[in-house]
Amino acid sequence: MRLVGDLFLLLGSAFLFLGALGLVRMPDVFNRIQAGAKAATLGVLGVLVGIAFLQPGWWPKLLAIGLFILFTNPVGSSTLARAIRIAGVRPWQKPAEESRALEEKS
């Protein structure tokens, strides 16, 4: 029981870490939202499942938190992306070489 919970916890935190790494490495706002939204959703769900295995009595509240995150996180990310696009930011569509140079400069 404890080992399964630990593995889920490790998987979830690894995805959270990768999402944050994507937040740092990606070159423009939309890609950052994309990395953040996906990885954070699955990462938090993994952590919640892991804790549910480690503390079996807590599953109702953990399920409530998980459902909420699952529904609100993509909605929040999409709303933010829409607002950013309306505010006038456009994703760049340059070739990869230029973009990499731009990223190293910043």
């Binding site: 995805f15 790494l21 990395a35 996906k38 990869a96």
Partner: peptide, 24 residues
């Protein structure tokens, strides 16, 4: 699909060349 997308994103983030070409 969520699981697949996360492994895909992890591959993109971890590869040093950052293989992305965004478009709308």
């Amino acid at each position: 699909a969520l699981l697949r997308s996360n492994f895909d994103m992890a591959r993109r983030v971890l590869s040093p060349a950052l293989p992305i070409r965004p478009a709308l």
